[in-house]
């Protein structure tokens, strides 16, 4: 069920933070940092960039929290800020990379195809599995990647994703469908070698 402003568990903290209480905002950071960082990491698949972007997202949120009207849950609002920050970052990064690799064009990230593919044994490691998934996600356009990550990695409802991305729900459905369709061949080795114990860690996202 999509959280409305009324049953938002963060409501009181948001009001305190908006009134200038930095401790209240610190608590919001602690509550949402793992979710936000995990989302950003899936979107940019670089540890350092993900940390810096997560920090930037919370600072943007801090600057804007006085203007947050509570029309949605804080979590939804924070994801809006996150997707916008990621979008800006991806555009900037691709312009920068284009300067150095003039031949490479479009959305496709060079990183996703570099390096040796992991063996079936490697795939038992959480880090290797996550890295393989993130590389597959990196081949998608930013639009498709955001939709499928918000749904399958972060566990948001379709209606909430429509709010975050500011698009009709039918568009959310078709983006998620196309994203999964394109990911299917890339994730073949992972489909054949299901996570053993890694699943428990992954499921903590769907709180």
């Amino acid at each position: 069920m999509t959280e409305t402003a009324h049953d938002d568990p963060d409501r009181q903290l948001v009001q305190q933070a908006a009134a200038g209480e930095r401790e209240a905002f610190d608590e919001l950071v602690r509550r949402h940092q793992t979710r936000t960082h995990n989302f950003v990491r899936a979107m940019v698949s670089d540890a350092g960039e993900a940390e810096d972007l997560t920090q930037e997202i919370f600072i943007r949120a801090y600057r804007a929290i006085g203007r947050f009207r509570g029309d949605s849950a804080f979590r939804t609002w924070l994801f809006r800020i996150a997707t916008n920050a990621v979008r800006t970052h991806v555009v900037r990064r691709s312009r920068w990379r284009a300067l150095w690799h003039r031949s490479s064009g479009g959305e496709r990230e060079g990183d996703a195809t570099r390096g040796d593919p992991p063996s079936a044994e490697d795939l038992e490691s959480d880090i290797v599995r996550r890295d393989s998934i993130d590389r597959a996600l990196a081949t998608l356009s930013e639009d498709l990647r955001a939709a499928v990550t918000l749904r399958d990695v972060e566990g948001l409802e379709y209606r909430e994703i429509a709010q975050v991305l500011d698009i009709p729900i039918g568009t959310v459905e078709s983006r998620i469908f196309r994203a999964r369709q394109r990911l299917r061949p890339l994730l073949e080795p992972l489909v054949r070698a299901p996570a053993a114990a890694g699943g428990a860690a992954g499921r903590t996202n769907h709180g």
């Binding site: 930095r22 610190d26 950071v29 602690r30 940092q33 793992t34 936000t36 960082h37 995990n38 990491r41 899936a42 540890a47 993900a50 940390e51 997560t54 920090q55 919370f58 600072i59 959480d126 880090i127 599995r129 996550r130 998934i133 499928v148 990550t149 749904r151 399958d152 990695v153 566990g155 999964r180 990911l183 299917r184 994730l187 992972l190 489909v191 299901p194 996570a195 890694g198 699943g199 860690a201 992954g202 499921r203 903590t204 996202n205 769907h206």
Partner: peptide, 23 residues
């Protein structure tokens, strides 16, 4: 099949110092 793999993606925990750095 794809959503099963994605749901089981091991979460990338935020490093322990990140909240302090943001604060």
């Amino acid at each position: 099949e794809v959503l099963t793999v994605l749901r089981a993606r091991p979460a990338a925990e935020a490093p322990p110092w990140l909240a302090a750095r943001i604060s």
